[in-house]
Every structure is written in structure tokens, then in C-alpha cells.
Design a protein around this nucleic acid. Structure first.
Length: 327
DNA sequence: AAGTCGGGGGC
DNA sequence: GCCCCAGACTT
């Protein structure tokens, strides 16, 4: 989207790298060049047009969906793919359409309804979030990123997403999809930096269109482009609206990522897996005897005890005599 | 800046 | 089997 920017495959030129600039946006170094502005404006139009044609009809994007429903979708989508969120979100919104509904629900039911979306602390935080909204905001999702970020489970991304998608305001939305699209199209990198860097933020900020309408459309469209076309594994550049000069990575011949030393997290045999097994039992039966739980890993009883202890500490489970049960 | 925290589908 | 997914929170 920023055809004039030079690819920097090594990432070594981080400090010298000129951030892309939004249309007419003031830049740290002064003024955006006219051709850069024009090139970016063209990319913005192309990506938004692509979205209108190819974007998915996801239920939380439909007209009239409440801010609360959108907030719920964003929390569920934190590290969980869209296809798995869809059925849970539908059921969730039918059951607890407003913050006050969720605030009054039994926590055990909330955790059961979360099912296997993963990271069940999100469900706990979401209920606490509903209670805070009821208690401090009259039952309405607050406006403004600062107020949103004060809610449990709402971080930088979710606050921006709710501001943009629910409230229709200009906000710097940067998720894993947008990071990847901008890393490729603007910076010419195969992948984003290991952690969300200042350089990435600068690129995202400079790329965000200035008008309210265009900024929200851009956020939605770039995110979708990353999800459907500019994917992590096998990007479908043939279908990309930026392949015709709007993508620095494509223009450079799609250079491979420089040695990715990213730590990959194991799963088999971890406490995390144990917590998951215990929660699965509790969702199914409501409670489980200590003895039954120990059977989850007879070779490593300490691992089971850690699972029980940390789940209880997180408020995801409650010790009840010789049993463990949902809160 | 790095660790922790679930779970499943695609390759 | 490995990788990745609309991140948040703690240390």
C-alpha cells in the first residue's frame, strides 16, 4: 500500500525506516511526498473495494448488532479462530443479550457455555466486565478507548476494535492479521516483528486513513485481507488487491523470513494441558473427585496438583472437600 | 521483552 | 507433528 517505501528484509534499518504516511497525515519528518500519498490512497480504495466484494458476512458485522455483542465477539476472538467462535457467540448472545444478563448468570453456566474456546479466564473476565459495565456504566458499553481499556479482559486491541467496529470511531486497530499485512505490504517483510514493535505501530498509525468512515472501513478490510488472502502460511497473492504495486513484499519477490527464532510453546505434558483436561471434566460433570483428577496423570501427581491449585487461584474452580467443582 | 494461558484445524 | 489463530496480563 506504500509502493514507494523500500523493502527492509533484514529489519536492521529499524531506526532509519521511514514510516508510511496516511493521506495528508502529518509525519515526524515533515511532509509526505505527493506520490506516496497518492499511492497509499489508491491502496486504501483497492482494499476497501476488495472487502466489499470478498468480505465474509459474519454475524457480528451485521447492521444493528449491539456494542456488547461486538465486545463479546472480540473477546472470544482473542486467539481463537472465527469458525470456532461462531456457534459459541450465537448461543451466548441468545442467552445473555445484554451485560446485565451475563452479570446475573451463574459463573458455572458461563464457563460451561464458553465450552472449548480455550483460555477460560476470558470467560471469567467477560462476566466481570459485564458486572463493571452494569455497576459503573449504567449497563451500557462505555465509549472511548481509555474507559474500555479499564474493563477486565479488554486490552489495547479490543478497546480499539470496539471503538472502530461498534462505535464507528477512528481507532488504531492492530491485530495479528493487520500486523502481517502491513509487515508485507509496507515494510516488505515476510512476517511481523516478534513482538508488536514501535516500528510496527508507526506504520499502522501512518497507514490509517484520517476520515472516520475510511478508517473504520480500512480496519475491517485489512483485517479481513490478512485472514483470507495475506495468510501466514500460503498467501494467495493472486487474489490480492495490493499485488499490483501496493505490496513491497510481493514486489521484492516474496523473500523468505529471516531465521525465525520465535519460541514455540509446547503443549503435550504441560500444566496448561492439565488445566484443560481438568476444566473439560468440570464442564462435563460440574465437579470431580480428587481421586478421579489424580488419574489424569498417574505418572506425575504433582502436575495434577499444580493444575488444581492454579485453577483455584484463577477462580476457575473451587475446592469443595475432596472434590473440585465449577465456581 | 519474555512467559503464561487452551484448543483445534490445516498442512 | 508443527504452526497459527480479531490477545491480555503478569513479571
Amino acid at each position: 500500500m506504500h509502493g514507494a517505501s523500500a523493502p527492509d528484509p533484514t529489519g536492521a534499518g529499524r531506526s532509519r525506516e521511514a514510516p508510511a504516511r496516511a493521506v495528508g497525515a502529518p509525519s515526524p519528518s515533515g511532509v509526505a511526498r505527493t506520490d506516496e500519498i497518492a499511492a497509499h490512497a489508491e491502496s486504501v480504495e483497492a482494499v476497501i473495494a476488495w472487502f466489499a466484494e470478498a468480505g465474509r458476512d459474519l454475524p457480528w458485522r451485521r447492521e444493528g448488532v449491539s456494542a456488547w455483542a461486538i465486545l463479546v465477539s472480540e473477546v472470544m476472538l482473542q486467539q481463537t479462530p472465527v469458525v470456532r467462535v461462531l456457534p459459541r457467540w450465537q448461543e451466548w448472545m441468545q442467552r445473555w443479550p445484554a451485560p446485565s444478563d451475563l452479570a446475573d448468570a451463574p459463573t458455572a453456566e458461563v464457563l460451561r457455555c464458553w465450552d472449548r474456546l480455550g483460555y477460560p479466564r476470558r470467560a471469567l473476565r467477560l462476566q466481570e466486565c459485564a458486572r463493571v459495565i452494569v455497576r459503573e456504566h449504567g449497563g451500557r458499553v462505555p465509549r472511548g478507548e481509555q474507559a474500555l481499556r479499564a474493563l477486565p479482559g479488554v486490552g489495547e486491541y479490543t478497546a480499539a476494535a470496539v471503538t472502530a467496529f461498534a462505535h464507528g470511531e477512528r481507532a488504531l486497530v492492530v491485530d495479528t492479521n493487520i500486523r502481517r499485512v502491513l509487515a508485507r505490504s509496507v515494510r516488505g517483510h515476510a512476517l511481523p516483528d516478534r513482538s508488536y514493535s514501535a516500528a510496527e505501530r508507526a506504520v499502522a498509525a501512518a497507514s490509517l486513513p484520517l476520515s472516520r468512515e475510511q478508517s473504520t472501513a480500512w480496519n475491517q478490510a485489512v483485517m479481513e485481507l490478512g485472514a483470507l488472502v495475506c495468510t501466514a502460511r500460503a498467501p494467495r497473492c493472486q487474489q490480492c488487491p495490493l499485488a499490483g504495486g501496493g505490496c513491497a513484499w510481493f514486489a521484492a519477490g516474496r523473500p523468505a523470513a529471516t531465521e525465525d527464532t520465535r519460541r514455540r510453546q509446547p503443549f503435550e505434558g504441560t500444566d496448561r494441558q492439565m488445566r484443560g483436561m481438568i476444566m473439560a471434566l468440570l464442564r462435563r460433570d460440574g465437579s470431580a473427585a480428587q481421586e478421579q483428577l489424580m488419574g489424569l496423570d498417574a505418572d506425575d501427581p504433582e502436575r495434577v496438583r499444580r493444575g488444581i491449585r492454579t485453577l483455584a487461584a484463577d477462580g476457575l474452580a473451587v475446592r469443595d472437600g475432596a472434590h473440585l467443582r465449577l465456581p
